[in-house]
């Protein structure tokens, strides 16, 4: 198999380039892309990429594989390799630090902007705050986000305005707290999202939904936020 990897080390390279590796892939089992990266690193230890849990829950190894964002550790070669070729690039739209490692600063700034924490200034009870299973169910499909950045870096609106458009990942979290029956800052949250950029740059093209490795649906969450904003002025 021919693996082509994006390489850039600012200490050595004046500009990025694609490096080709010919790899013998064992046929007896379906390797993950992360296994391939590990094989490459054994032959060239200067190749840098992030990884940790290797089971799709930590969100470290979001990369672009043959043009599609995803987690290297849960993407089997069988689903991504075309014509015995695999191109691995860093997540698009963010500055590259080195090789497959991108600077996620903008991404996390947008996450922080939505105040991704429960706000409830009432004195908490001695035990837990009660929540019905129905109310809790509203958080399903929202809280599972692993902040890998695959969605936001697949979103053209985020590419153009990473400093102003919150992006699908941040908005999913914004809605996770808007939808939480225990949160009391709905009005405050909404008023911070009403500008023309934060939410409304979403054009509903659903790239985020198509790449999310956890099968989440940020576009739907964004739709809910938009409806809440509309109901607020209606």
């Amino acid at each position: 198999m021919l693996v082509s990897v994006y390489r850039f080390n600012p200490e050595v390279d004046s500009e990025p380039y694609m490096q080709d590796f010919a790899l013998d892939i064992p046929q007896n089992r379906d390797l993950m892309v992360l296994d391939v990266l590990a094989m490459l690193k054994e032959s060239d230890d200067s190749l840098s990429y992030r990884r940790s849990c290797r089971e799709g829950v930590c969100g470290s190894d979001g990369v672009n594989m043959n043009g599609r964002n995803g987690l290297a550790c849960t993407t089997p070669l069988s689903t991504v390799v075309k014509g015995d070729k695999l191109k691995i690039r860093p997540l698009p739209g963010l500055p590259v630090i080195r090789d497959l490692i991108v600077d996620m600063g903008d991404f996390f700034k947008q996450y922080e902007k939505v105040k991704p924490y429960l706000i409830n200034n009432d004195e908490p009870p001695k035990q837990e705050r009660l929540q019905s299973p129905e109310d809790r169910e509203k958080l399903d499909g929202l809280y599972e986000c692993i902040l890998c950045g695959c969605c936001s870096t697949a979103c053209p609106s985020f590419w153009w305005n990473p400093d102003k458009f919150v992006g699908p990942a941040g908005l999913l979290q914004a809605y996770r707290f808007l939808a939480d029956s225990r949160d009391t800052a709905k009005e405050e949250r909404l008023s911070e999202l009403k500008d023309p950029f934060s939410v409304f740059r979403c054009r509903g093209i659903m790239n985020c939904v198509s790449v999310c490795p956890k099968g989440l649906n940020p576009t739907r969450a964004i739709g809910h936020i938009r409806n809440m904003l509309l109901n607020r002025i209606a």
Binding site: R50, S52, C53, E55, V57, C58, G59, S60, M104, F108, I146, L147
Partner: peptide, 11 residues
């Protein structure tokens, strides 16, 4: 050494 939410508690 990893962004905090990448820590192994997550698993």
């Amino acid at each position: 050494k990893v962004f905090p939410t990448r820590s192994h508690t997550v698993s």
